[in-house]
């Protein structure tokens, strides 16, 4: 079964499955213990190292299991964990399990441009106003019409007493907002990178007094970024390309890492994201097999009632027109051949002397004949006329 097409072959919206996009990805931690080595942590000894790679380890059970930051003895106390996802994903949730006393303030950010710029997705803090200048999140989600970065008052407590950062995009979106119909929500869930900033440790009191601080380090494991490889409804899976980059396996005449544009010949209508109602597949231009390239013309598209805007380029086989559907000057349609036949257009072959021009009727092939001349190519004198010696008036009335 093809998830991107109906049984009859009609296109339908398709999306890749929900995955942990962070699994196996490199995590960049701004602080990791073990350099220089201490009794508890030594980055050069696998048995005592706590690298950031442990956060997204694929398979197996590692020992130790938790990443640990360096001891935080003075401000700033921020430690960030950054996960480049390798391509755009549509987020569903982000979670991180803390292995020791969790921080009291955590900021969650995302980038849509591979780490060049960042925007907040949410905050977790018992002091939302103090740490992030925000009010605690309302119980029933954001008040505004669109999703927004809310400050949640606390982390989740697990049955075993541990703490979990659990962020769901649903919690920061107003109820009823639909991904298919809301470009704002589509933008909100789109991310290429995730950053978790552990802002304030729980065990430290007044952070302005570095003398009073107790050495502390952050420790966490199982960083998960739940999401779908973003393909705009035009692919059911993502694959690694020859250079090891994750890309959508695009269908519906689309291409690009996210199926974000139409393939070169598929520009009969503008690119659109697929929805549950309509696949919005890119359509191939109609060129009767005589052109390999086409371009989109918005004016023609509007005039056609938003049906077709493709204009064929470089029509071959002596054809011409927007769809290579008629013959170019000096050629006429052979009625015995199909429009897509390579020899559908025949040369007019107008007689150099008997014809008054080189262009024949595109349908019948009839050349324009001089007075007294007849025949499809104007190569004979009409009855009652005879050939003269003048190439200007090749046929004269028979005396």
């Amino acid at each position: 079964a093809d998830p991107c097409h109906e049984e009859g072959g009609a296109p339908r919206a398709c999306v890749p499955g929900l995955v942990n996009a962070a699994l196996g990805r490199e995590v960049l931690a701004s602080s990791t213990c073990g350099q220089p080595p201490t009794q508890a942590c030594d980055s050069s000894d696998p048995r005592r190292a706590h690298p950031a790679a442990l956060l997204t380890l694929a398979g197996g059970t590692a020992s130790p299991v938790c990443w640990r930051s360096d001891l935080l003895t003075q401000a700033p106390l921020n430690v960030s964990l950054t996960v480049p996802l390798g391509k755009t994903f549509e987020l569903v949730f982000v979670s991180l399990r803390f292995c020791s006393t969790p921080p009291t303030s955590v900021a969650l950010l995302k980038s849509q441009d591979h780490g060049r710029s960042w925007v907040p997705l949410g905050f977790f803090s018992s002091c939302c106003g103090l740490d992030y200048g925000r009010l605690p999140a309302p119980a029933n989600g954001p008040a505004g019409p669109g999703p927004e970065a809310l400050c949640f008052p606390e982390l989740q407590t697990q049955p075993d007493g541990g703490s979990l950062l659990a962020f769901s995009v649903q919690d920061s979106s107003p109820p009823g907002l639909d991904l298919d119909s809301s470009p704002v929500l589509q933008d909100w869930v789109t991310a290429t990178d995730i950053r978790i900033v552990l802002t304030r440790p729980a065990m430290l009191g007044d952070t302005s007094d570095s003398e009073a601080m107790v050495p502390y380090s952050y420790s966490a494991a199982e960083l998960q970024v739940g999401g779908r490889c973003k393909c705009n409804g035009h692919a059911s899976r993502c694959l690694l390309d020859t250079q090891g980059h994750l890309i959508c396996d695009c269908r519906h005449g689309t291409e690009g890492p996210d199926c974000g544009r139409c393939k070169p010949f598929y520009c009969d209508r503008p690119w659109q994201r697929a929805t549950a109602r309509e696949a919005h597949a890119c359509l191939a231009c109609s060129c009767n097999g005589h052109a390999r390239r086409c371009r989109f013309n918005m004016e023609l598209y509007r005039l056609s009632g938003r049906r077709s805007g493709g204009v064929c380029l470089n029509c071959r086989h002596n054809t011409a027109g927007r769809h290579c559907h008629y013959c170019r000057e000096g050629f006429y349609r052979d009625p015995g051949r199909a429009p897509n036949d390579r020899r559908a257009c025949r040369a007019c072959d107008c007689h150099p002397v008997g014809a008054a021009g080189k262009t024949c009727n595109q349908t019948t092939g009839q050349c324009p004949c001089k007075d007294g001349v007849t025949g499809l190519t104007c190569n004979r004198c009409a009855p009652g006329f005879q050939q003269s010696r003048s190439p200007v008036a090749p046929c004269v009335k028979t005396p």
Binding site: R380, P383, Q387, R389, C395
Partner: peptide
């Protein structure tokens, strides 16, 4: 009546050299 095709050899190009088709 089927008339013969125009015989190019019969035409006198003396005054119309510029119109003469290439052979």
């Amino acid at each position: 009546e089927v008339m013969p095709t125009l015989d190019m050899a019969l035409f006198d190009w003396t005054d119309y050299e510029d119109l003469k088709p290439e052979a």
